[in-house]
Amino acid sequence: MNSALVIGGTRFIGRHLVDDLLAHDYDVTLFTRGNRENPFADDDRVDHVEGNRTNDTALEATATTVDPDAVFDCVAYQPKDVRSATTIFADCEAYVYVSSGAAYGREEIPKREDETPLHPCTADQATDDSFDTYGNRKAECDRAVFAAADDGVRAMAVRPPIVYGPHDYTERLDWWINRVNRFDRVLIPGDGTNLRHRVYVEDVASALRLVAENGIPGEAYNVGDRRLVTLEEMVDLIADCLETDVELVHAGPRELAAGDLALDDYPLYRTYPHVLSTAKLAALGWESTPLEEAMERSVADHRESDRDGDENGPDRAAEERVLGILETL
């Protein structure tokens, strides 16, 4: 494969995917609405087609004029959009859909592509755009990928959990980096052993390309850090990257209540462990970035940005009330 169309490629996952494709000598075309700054505007290796991915006419025109070998669909959130795209790009060598670990409908450890059931999706959920139906819609999008493969399209899905790294507009990890950077005492919800699978964004990008090149049509592939760390270990990694020492203070539900806080007020906290098996992707030759290296790059990018993640978690005043209570115990 020599050419790629990236549907949505200027913000986070798509941005890193374009970098990865260019590093592997692909000719790249972006398809975006043009509402955000294009980081590749001055790169003559990257073409740009402006349009709305929900507009089938615009996608059909792009399929004709660009004629890509591989299509990477980073911004499809409703099943109808995947069904349209797999029809429009049916003759391409690969269609790879960016799905989510949220598509899994049963809590088990680990979640495996060919064993763990997906969420159901009703007709109403399929056309919704709220966070409450995100997992349902992603699951139905995956089923649309599988149906397309049954019809002869080389369509595949990649399922990441929480993605982190440079240019992360969600600022979930930024909240924690900011806490460690600013304060010498960091409040940890629960006992610190909370386990939620995460994945470094550059590893998602390489996985997407590798699946396009070597994946099996009709298959889904989990992508996640090959070594998992608890929430407390993640904070320790951040502190190491910042070359600082912090005191980690644990607070359970009763202690957090002193600040009108709850465990799930904290970004990246999840009550039940969320772990994806990545063996299937690794069998294609994929490897993940060492955690220390991934965090080092993430922290460096945070320090160069104006992101603080403040909207993602508790304010410090509420935490200070909890810390004050804990000091008296």
Rank of each mutant, 00 (worst) to 15 (best):
S277I: 02
P273V: 02
A258L: 09
E292Y: 06
R254I: 07
P290D: 14
E287R: 13
E255R: 14
A294F: 09
T278F: 01
V275Q: 01
P253V: 11
G259R: 03
A257D: 14
P273E: 02
P290N: 12
Y266P: 02
S298A: 13
A282K: 12
Y266L: 10
R297N: 12
D264A: 07
Y269Q: 15
E255D: 15
G259N: 04
T271G: 06
S277K: 01
R297C: 02
G285Q: 11
L261M: 05
A279R: 14
Y266Q: 04
R270S: 12
E287Y: 03
G252C: 11
H274K: 13
E292V: 12
Y269K: 11
A279V: 04
G285A: 08
E296F: 10
P290W: 11
Y272W: 08
L256D: 06
D260S: 14
S298M: 05
M295G: 07
A257R: 09
T289L: 12
L268H: 08
R254V: 09
E296Q: 14
T271L: 12
D265I: 06
R254N: 13
Y269F: 15
L256F: 10
P253Q: 13
Y269C: 10
A258I: 05
P273T: 01
E293H: 13
R297D: 15
A258R: 14
L268V: 10
L291Y: 04
G259A: 07
A283M: 03
E296K: 12
E287I: 03
E287V: 04
S277L: 01
P290S: 09
L261C: 05
G285L: 09
E287C: 03
L268N: 08
T271C: 01
L261I: 05
A283R: 12
P253S: 15
L268S: 04
A262Y: 01
G285Y: 08
W286T: 02
V299T: 11
W286D: 07
R254M: 07
E292F: 04
T278P: 00
D265Q: 04
E287P: 00
H274D: 14
V275W: 00
Y272I: 11
T289D: 11
G285W: 07
L261K: 04
V275G: 00
P290C: 07
A251W: 06
L281I: 11
S288R: 02
E293P: 01
P267S: 09
Y272D: 15
G252Q: 07
G252S: 10
E287M: 03
W286C: 01
A279H: 07
R270N: 14
D265R: 03
E293M: 09
A279M: 03
H274A: 12
E292P: 02
T271H: 14
H274L: 14
G285C: 06
S298Y: 07
L276D: 03
E292G: 14
L268C: 06
L256C: 05
T271Y: 09
S277A: 13
V275R: 00
S277R: 02
A283H: 08
S288P: 00
E287N: 08
